[in-house]
């Protein structure tokens, strides 16, 4: 177990790379940059331009999410016909084939995770400015959740690449990648970058509007 340190106004900075803790000596001067004395990594109380970068990435991801879902991600050719499959269409086919478990896995990875990431990050970035003291612990947990599940949305990209690489029997049966796959891959990368741009320390910044007794003592 370890106990929290309450050292008044002194701010400690933990190095993201090596974990060494330094006292913040930059004060409020935004022009000063402090480096870790052990490994030389830049130390920030919060990542610079975190909210701006997060918003930029989630807006771009939300826009690209439209072609990712409307354009086909995969094209299949068989002796009888040529088909185009969208993300949702592919899941629907799996469901009709009776592969419910597979349909659920692909639905979670391709639809639920990207939507969850865009929605949660928009909520987190919005509440940092508008409702800083609303359910901080739950928001911190939400961030950790999307940080953990984030890269699973790559699943369908891999599946289409693998199917295109193995199903190569010419006109008899072949699979190739569709135009929508590029948009979908861009959504995956942008939501990952958005997650890494957001600084969860922002959730805990700005003390509550109504001062608690402890804050009152510190001000006195």
């Amino acid at each position: 177990m370890s106990g929290a340190v309450d050292d008044g106004d002194d701010v400690y900075l933990g190095c993201e790379s090596c974990g060494l803790v330094s006292r913040d000596v930059t004060g409020d001067d935004p022009g000063l940059v402090q480096h870790c004395s052990r490994c030389g990594h830049v130390l920030h109380a919060t990542k610079p331009f975190s909210l701006q970068r997060t918003w930029a990435c989630i807006v771009a991801a939300a826009v690209l999410y439209i072609p990712a879902n409307t354009l086909p991600v995969m094209e299949t050719t068989s002796a009888l016909q040529r088909d185009e499959h969208t993300l949702l269409g592919g899941i629907h086919e799996l469901w009709l084939d009776g592969s419910w478990a597979l349909a659920v896995i692909v639905f979670i990875a391709s639809i639920a995770v990207p939507v969850l990431k865009i929605g949660v990050l928009a909520l987190l970035a919005w509440t940092v400015r508008r409702h800083p003291d609303w359910r901080r612990l739950e928001r911190a947990r939400l961030y950790r959740l999307i940080e953990t599940v984030g890269h699973w949305s790559m699943l369908d990209v891999y599946v289409v690449v693998l199917l295109a690489a193995t199903v190569r029997f010419g006109p008899l049966a072949s699979v190739s990648t569709g135009a929508g796959l590029l948009s979908f891959a861009a959504v995956v990368v942008l939501t990952l970058l958005a997650t890494w741009s957001f600084d969860p320390r922002l959730i805990w910044r700005d003390p509550p509007a109504t001062p608690t007794p402890r804050d009152g003592r510190r001000l006195a």
């Binding site: 106990g3 933990g14 803790v21 947990r141």
Partner: peptide
């Protein structure tokens, strides 16, 4: 020694852990 929570930035005074357990941040539970 000091350990800073990577998720919320709160500093903690380190105390040794019992075997196979984990220390969590007292503020954000990371």
């Amino acid at each position: 020694s000091l350990v800073v929570c990577g998720q919320c930035g709160l500093a903690h005074r380190w105390q040794p852990l019992p075997e196979t357990s984990q220390a969590r941040c007292t503020r954000c539970d990371a």
